[in-house]
Simulated assay, not measured.
Amino acid sequence: MTVQHLLLVVPGAPGAAAHLVEADAQHPQLSVLDVAATRGDGIFETLSTGRGHAQALQAHLDRFARSARMLDLPAPDLAVWRDAVLALAQRLADHDEAWVKIVLSRGIETPGVAALPTGWAYGTVSPDFRRERTEGVDVVLLDRGLRSDVSDTSPWLLAGAKTLSYAVNRAAVREAQRRGADDVVFVSSDGLLLEGPTSSLVIRRGDELATPPDALGILPGTTQVDLFAAADQWGLRTVVEPLTPDDLRAADAAWLVSSVRHAAPLRSVDGAALPVDAPLSAAMNGFLRARTA
């Protein structure tokens, strides 16, 4: 039986704090009029937990608030969301790896009436990612169709916000699967590497780890930040700079890193083999699983 836990984050009256309500994840909770369902108009974060510890919690909460600002949503009460995550992490404390997803939507559309936001936190046990973390994944490069300066030229496109509008991301993964691959690395229309549909890109060049900058319109990666903070213990230095497909093809190793799957090495790009650094992959994943904050 699937282990599932659900807390609703109920907004308070004007001037009052939101509060948490226990709910049954097996029963419907969302109105068919909620814009989370009808328009994908909302934000989310997914974070890993291990034996009751929520990992990179503050970074996820900060990014949650950042996405809310980008969508002009009411500022989330981060203390309440923190309580929700910690409560679910404790309920999943018997498991080495689990995850919690927090969601905030604009609420129910009613003409002439200000909507109250809808929020919830859901937690369950993580899938087994041992194959992806050890054998690696095959990726294809796909054009995202946006220039690398999209955040400056067209901020209304919400590049770099973690929104509920994931239809394009899922379509990209299906396209990768049609091409015989597992995942995607997006490329800007002016030829720069960006990110995966649900992950950040990290490459190794000798003793250097590199990743593209957030300014290119990509989501700031909480897992990438944690790995870069730990890089010196593996004798590596770090750099954040624009990267091209040629940089990826010439890399000594590369990974797609994310909160739940952790570090998945890339074993091929568009069908061309890429070296898999098994020892460093194991070190990265061991570090990520062991985090207690």
Rank of each mutant, 00 (worst) to 15 (best):
S151R: 12
A250R: 15
L61M: 12
G123N: 07
A115L: 01
M70P: 13
I102H: 07
E175T: 15
V184P: 05
E97H: 15
G12K: 14
G112T: 11
S67R: 09
I102N: 03
A254C: 10
L256I: 13
G52M: 06
G180T: 10
T238R: 08
P212G: 11
F129H: 10
A272F: 10
L256W: 08
A68G: 05
W234P: 00
V187W: 05
R82H: 06
P28L: 09
K101F: 03
Q4F: 06
R178H: 15
W81L: 01
Q4Y: 00
I102V: 13
L192R: 04
S151I: 00
S200L: 02
S31M: 06
D149H: 12
R237S: 13
L243Y: 07
R249Y: 08
V21D: 02
R174G: 03
R91Q: 15
L7P: 01
V240G: 04
Y122C: 03
L61T: 01
T292C: 14
L141N: 09
R267Q: 13
S268H: 07
V185W: 02
I102R: 01
G12F: 04
G271M: 05
V32G: 10
N169V: 05
M1G: 14
V10R: 08
R82G: 09
L157Y: 11
E175N: 12
R39A: 11
H5A: 14
R261I: 04
F287S: 09
A59D: 09
K101L: 01
A115C: 10
R130P: 03
D77W: 01
S268K: 09
Q55R: 10
D226Y: 07
R144A: 08
T110L: 06
K101S: 04
F44N: 05
H53A: 14
Q177M: 09
V225G: 00
R63G: 00
L61F: 06
G221P: 08
S259Q: 05
V125T: 04
T222K: 03
S268Y: 03
L61G: 02
D24L: 09
I108M: 07
T124H: 05
H19C: 09
Q177L: 02
E195P: 04
V140Q: 02
L248N: 05
S165P: 01
V32A: 10
A272T: 15
G119V: 03
L194A: 03
A264K: 06
Q55W: 02
P111D: 11
R237H: 14
R178L: 15
A18G: 15
A89G: 11
L158S: 03
P117K: 02
S189W: 09
H262F: 01
S105K: 09
H95N: 07
L57T: 08
V139G: 00
R170C: 15
P76E: 01
L216C: 08
R289V: 03
F129D: 03
S154E: 11
L266F: 11
K162D: 05
Q90M: 05
M1Q: 12
G191P: 10
R69L: 02
D247Q: 10
L92P: 07
R204H: 00
R204A: 07
G107C: 06
V239Q: 14
W120K: 01
V276R: 13
V85E: 00
M284H: 11
D96Y: 00
V240W: 00
F287E: 02
E132H: 14
L194K: 01
R249C: 13
S48P: 10
T2I: 13
G42R: 00
V85W: 04
D138V: 12
P14S: 13
E241I: 02
M70S: 13
D246W: 12
L158M: 10
